[in-house]
Design a binder for these strands. Structure first.
Lengths: 228, 228
DNA sequence: GGATGTGAACGACTTCACAGCG
DNA sequence: CGCTGTGAAGTCGTTCACATCC
């Protein structure tokens, strides 16, 4: 079995899920929800491909992982496809999240309403700064980090968002893992070490800006990027 | 010439830059800066590989693009490598950026000091909300969007950060392009259409959270992820 | 006809393995 | 020796092309 397959427990000849597809699943879902709002009953692989900027064959390969939902000559029933995707992605249930670090980034996240629509609910906000503890921020009271374990237990939170300075990232990561958190969205510009079984996604804004500058730099100096 | 090569204007047999390498260059730089702080004179491909979780051969392939900086038996001189990388990435100069959307996200970005160290400077902040215009936010006065073109011209800004709601993203993107911006870092959950010659990097936080939930979901249901 | 599902071909990226140099 | 630079091999992901089904 190849290394890059994300194990399907199956007998062995059902479609497998590649890492690359994983990254596209959320995008499919987003566009499908748009199609549904536009009352499109069936979507074809080429409609989705165009929306994402990939080929129709690629789309069909990806969607094959969800089972044989497509109907030749018709396409995929929008609603069924959404349901299947939500199920596979795990967003057909509620995810309770805690936020650590009560700064402006936390405010921005808590205020953004897009998360709730996708099943994410922020249930608690923590900080280590004594001045902030007890204050209300976007409807949540700032709690001391010492309360993490208790709160995670009481709320059943599974995910944590780390919006803390670089120095604090590793100890806070350790603390949330200790508290029982299974997935971390990290905004600090370091990659914390985590035990197996805890997932991590990092968003490093300085690196994103740097990549952007690089792209501009490239197109300003010599080269052409092939348009993809 | 292969499609995925990012054109090197060269004669034809110097190392080429792959899309995948591009994404790693910023990471190399980050770790190199750490090594430099730790007074490491020379770094080997295996040191960098370990830091990024990739093989040493991969590192050497990537770094070959910078020219023959490596010394057999020794490694790469840390400082030279940093200088070469900065030069290629285009972060050996200042990048002036404007921010559109004076909300909490903008506050968080403006307050974060990590950008300046990498040569990024936020020179102006815009909003369409009349209540915000004229107010000071983290040392910048909020300007009306109508001033974009003038300000971009006066400051020489090349990059724009879009921290606006989804509905506003496309018109604002059009406006900053019209004003002469060459690269956009977009936080709105849509991908704006842009003319060729303008680069775009999108950061969609809802999608990141969804990916995280998916990873946790996967590891909770069946499967094992290979640890990379 | 129109669109799916899929083996086969293709291309890109990664790893291997080793010659060559300090 | 140790470590680079690099052709060759291998692996993964994407696209092609077409049989198949509604």
């Amino acid at each position: 079995m190849s290394k890059s397959e994300i194990a399907s427990g199956g007998i062995g000849n059902e479609p497998r899920l590649s890492r690359a597809s994983v990254a596209r699943f959320s995008l499919y879902l987003r566009h499908l929800e748009r199609f549904e709002r536009e009352r499109v009953r069936n979507v074809s692989s080429s409609m989705l491909g165009e929306a994402l900027g990939i080929t129709d064959a690629q789309v069909r390969k990806d969607l094959a992982y969800l089972g044989n939902l497509g109907q030749p000559g018709i396409g995929y029933p929008t609603q069924d496809l959404i349901a299947a995707l939500r199920n596979r992605l795990g967003v057909d249930r509620q995810w309770a999240c805690v936020v650590v670090g009560a700064g402006n980034l936390a405010r921005a996240l808590l205020r953004y309403k897009g998360f709730e629509k996708h099943g994410f609910r922020f249930v608690a906000l923590f900080d280590s700064d004594a001045d902030k503890i007890g204050k209300m921020v976007e409807g949540l009271q700032v709690l001391p980090i010492q309360n993490l374990k208790e709160t995670v237990g009481a709320t059943g939170a599974t995910l944590a968002v780390l919006a803390v300075p670089a120095e604090a990232a590793q100890p806070v990561a350790d603390a949330v893992v200790e508290a029982g958190i299974k997935g971390i969205l990290n905004f600090a510009p370091i990659m914390p070490r985590l035990p197996a079984g805890v997932s991590l996604i990092g968003v490093d804004l300085a690196i994103q800006l740097e990549q952007l500058a690089f792209l501009v730099h490239l197109s300003q100096t010599e080269s052409k990027l092939d348009p993809r």
